[in-house]
Design a protein around this nucleic acid. Structure first.
Lengths: 361, 361
DNA sequence: AGCGTTTCTGCAATCGTTTGCAATTTATCG
DNA sequence: CGATAAATTGCAAACGATTGCAGAAACGCT
């Protein structure tokens, strides 16, 4: 159907091997024939067949990204970043959706290696450590966002302790002393780490920790709603709530709206992870940005590095942390001074203005 | 490295060809040897190499989905649906992001055919008709959501005229006579079609069309904000706004919040396309659902059909329309009867309750 | 037993590349 | 100019599967 290397070789009256060498630029052909062949190849519209090449070289120029879903905004930007980076290097991204389900993850992993992918970036469920470990013998693997403790794979993580610390400290600096926390399940790393950052900030500020202000649960809107109600019904309710996940934020917003609680006047709200509409919400929602973009970029960097260094040479470093940063918008206010919220000054929440206000760790 | 067909054959003391035939189940081997080989293959952990197979058969078991981005909620669910369906059939999905940019689309398309994908579902930019047409000689292609007028490729479209009609009629039935419309650019099919549905509903109801209530623009939040302001500043402002795109919705929500306009009491709001948080917003936002899930499923169906029928046999049908449906939530109210909004009864907007209320076309 | 069928198996070619090795050409230098 | 080294080139064997063709085995039948 399409034009093959043989066609090119014939047209140029050389052997297939010469053609191959000329076009792949091994430097083993004379300048002249190389030029000539490249010209003819272009003329004929020759495009090498990656499958045939893959069979011989064992490479596919395919890199897979395995994430839990696409509804999570972080995963979206990660997917976009990874795709863009890889494409620029002549790789195609194979995007797989594992649904955070170990069985699916396992299945997908085997198909992927079957397809002889050249690299893999995976957000592990944590239940297939052994398999990942085995696969990493064949294929460079980088873990993203989550660590699989059963492996010692290179892992790119968000700095959750730092992010939660930053956020909590911000609220404390605004004068808040009773800060509610809605956080993920404590059997997940991120859940634990975000809690620890919160605790550290309180301790540093000399504020006694009150566990009745801390609620943990799944990252779903319902959790946010339930926990929010509990916090609001507390005998001494918090003046600020830190929602350590954007899904839960939905529930919190709904409950506060239902009860006519004005943000930030009656209650300050700070969230973790950005969503495109946070900026357009009224009030615009302040967040701790986990740096999805940076995470994805770093993961790609590390993967490319591993793919270069054949034999999967390691650098010793096994874990990378990407700094979180605070993006102040309009949902948190100074609590000492009654009056207009301190940080609610921006009229139009253009990306520019919020970027200017954001503080790098 | 991994175990090959040859290894299996050797272990079973048969030739590679017999092994191949037994394992692919061509029915050309005796029952006994087939069983024996399958057993040995399993024992050895043999997994066929898709690359080698692909070289011979010209197939890759790879199907590509080319969309504009992943921030659009419709594309997210489409990607998830397509991935799930294909995986069940032993295909891998290659997700590509074209950014609605003709150049990128063109590049991506060539790499994809290079990789000998078995099928392609594409949301076309509309600028690469010729190329698509050519490729469709080699690979089954189905267009999704957008039509490329330069081709006569099979296309799965949302029924935008019907959706806009449905939405507008709903508002009219609630007693609205002045209905603002914020719609997409009129050089896009969807922009034109949604406008036409709106117009038809008005005409059927005998309501005079007032073009000062209609604003067209790009599908971005800023457009929504600007158009919304114009509508509100109108000498005879509308009692309802139909926002024909979810991105623009963000802008509208912000402006109404800024001006303290209560929804639905002061203004009814109806949007096009769902977003996960619409249901959690206060008030929950009523929408016209374009049926992203159905669209994706149908596109997969059509693609599979084309992939089965070798030689790309066509059925004559070139265009499929997937019905839109109205999902009533809490953002539109009856306008004649002052008092509580008619359609704002559901306390907790669980998926169940809204599904129960939704009307299929 | 002999013969024709049918069923099963193996040989070998093939898909489009890459690559080790040997053969050929070209350049270099005394 | 001839010998030797260096630069090019071609031959042929891979990579791991599938498949047409022909030979072998098994079967039924007279």
């Amino acid at each position: 159907m399409s034009v093959t290397l043989k066609d090119v070789a014939q047209a140029a009256r050389v052997s297939v091997s010469t053609a191959s060498r000329a076009l792949t630029g091994t430097g083993l052909t004379s300048e002249r024939t190389q030029q000539r062949l490249m010209h003819i190849a272009r003329e004929l519209g020759y495009r090498p067949n990656p499958i045939a090449r893959g069979l011989k070289t064992g490479q596919s120029r395919l890199v897979a990204l395995l994430v839990h879903n696409l509804t999570n905004a972080s995963f979206q930007v990660m997917a976009e970043v990874v795709q863009a980076r890889l494409k620029a290097l002549g790789y195609q991204m194979l995007l797989c959706i594992g649904g955070d389900d170990p069985q699916q993850e396992s299945d997908t992993l085997t198909t992927l290696v079957d397809h002889r992918i050249d690299g893999l970036i995976v957000v592990p469920t944590g239940k297939n450590g052994a398999q990942l470990e085995t696969l990493s013998k064949d294929v460079p693997i980088v873990c993203l966002v989550r660590r699989d403790d059963a492996t010692d794979l290179e892992t790119v993580l968000a700095d959750d302790p730092q992010g939660a610390y930053l956020g909590t400290r911000h609220l404390i600096e605004l004068g808040h002393k009773r800060i509610g926390l809605i956080v993920g399940r404590q059997d997940t790393t991120s859940g634990r780490e975000r809690l620890s950052g919160y605790v550290r900030a309180l301790r540093e500020a000399g504020i006694a920790r009150d566990d009745t202000l801390v609620h943990a649960g799944h990252y779903v809107p319902e959790t946010g709603a339930t926990c929010c109600r509990k916090l609001l019904d507390h005998p001494r309710p918090p003046s600020a709530i830190f929602v350590a996940n954007h899904e839960a934020t939905l529930g919190v917003l709904r409950v506060t709206a239902e009860r006519n609680i004005a943000i930030p006047d009656d209650l300050s709200l700070l969230c973790y992870e950005d969503m495109p509409w946070f900026e357009w919400h009224r009030p615009a929602i302040s967040i701790v940005d986990n740096g999805a973009r940076d995470l994805a970029n770093l993961a790609v960097d590390r993967l490319l590095h591993r793919m270069d260094v054949k034999g999967n040479g390691s650098d010793g470093v096994r874990e990378y942390r990407v700094g979180a940063r605070l993006i102040q918008r309009d949902s948190c206010r100074q609590i000492d001074t009654p009056g207009p919220a301190k940080s609610a000054k921006s009229k139009s929440p253009s990306p520019k203005s919020s970027a200017a206000k954001s503080a790098k760790v």
